[in-house]
Amino acid sequence: MIELRHLSKTFLTKEGSFEALRDISLTVEDGDIHGIIGVSGAGKSTLVRCVNLLEKPTSGSVLIDGEDVTNYSGRRLLNLRGKIGMIFQDFSLFAQRNALANVIFPLQLRRDSRKDAAKRGMELLELVGLAHKAKSYPAQLSGGQQQRVAIARALANHPSYLLCDEATSALDSLTTDAILQLLKTINHELGVTILVITHEMKVIETICNKVAVLDGAQIVERGKTADVFAQPEQQITQRLLGQAMAEAAAQAAAESATAVSASTTLTDQLAYLEVKSDV
């Protein structure tokens, strides 16, 4: 279980102080895929970075499995981080290491034997469907493949938790779906609790059982995904939902528009899209 209690984070900059998170309280139960959604600058990355203490909260506390880890430092902090996997928007693979070497990086930090690590690495690449790319370097992989390698890397240490910061934002719609399905599988089969940060309702809708809406440094709404979707209380949630619906409509329209006929002019198609996305 991940618990955030009255967490605040204020950045001190040359221009003055900036409050990125204000009094955040949040519980992620074991087995959850918990979403956090918000617009750009809402504080999502800061929030998720507080969980593994890449960012030190200004006040409040972080509890992992009931233990207050906020003031962990040294070895204890490093070990804690080893138990929390993380994936990133830009994948952040090591460019000079091949897929397998990337996956076993976290194991090498713990001085596992090379052979055991390689074995575990291949298992993980198998799991994400990329065993045949073990020797490929990140530059030789597509975005979706890179994110799969990154997921395998994040799971190397058998973490109980996986943090995903905009894990699908750099991917196209089909690849996003595939990655989301993979995350779902990891949650179901390996029992990994997942915290998902996103600005896309679609991501929440597809995999999250719970969601919190972050706006202006605060959580303004939270609950079961189904409830929040059925009755969004906050304007920001409605807006995020509306946007998601418009996007879905636009996509459907684009698909049918291309299917309709080649004779339709571009202007017609654009007009069609506009009508649809007004919904």
């Binding site: 890449l54 490093l78 981080r81 993380m86 952040s92 693979l93 990086f105 976290p106 890397r153």
Partner: peptide
């Protein structure tokens, strides 16, 4: 890339590592 450093930190790499 800063992302590579951050990833290593997130996996619990020490400063020396």
């Amino acid at each position: 890339p800063a992302g590579s450093i951050e990833a290593a930190q997130a996996f619990g790499a020490s400063t020396f590592q």
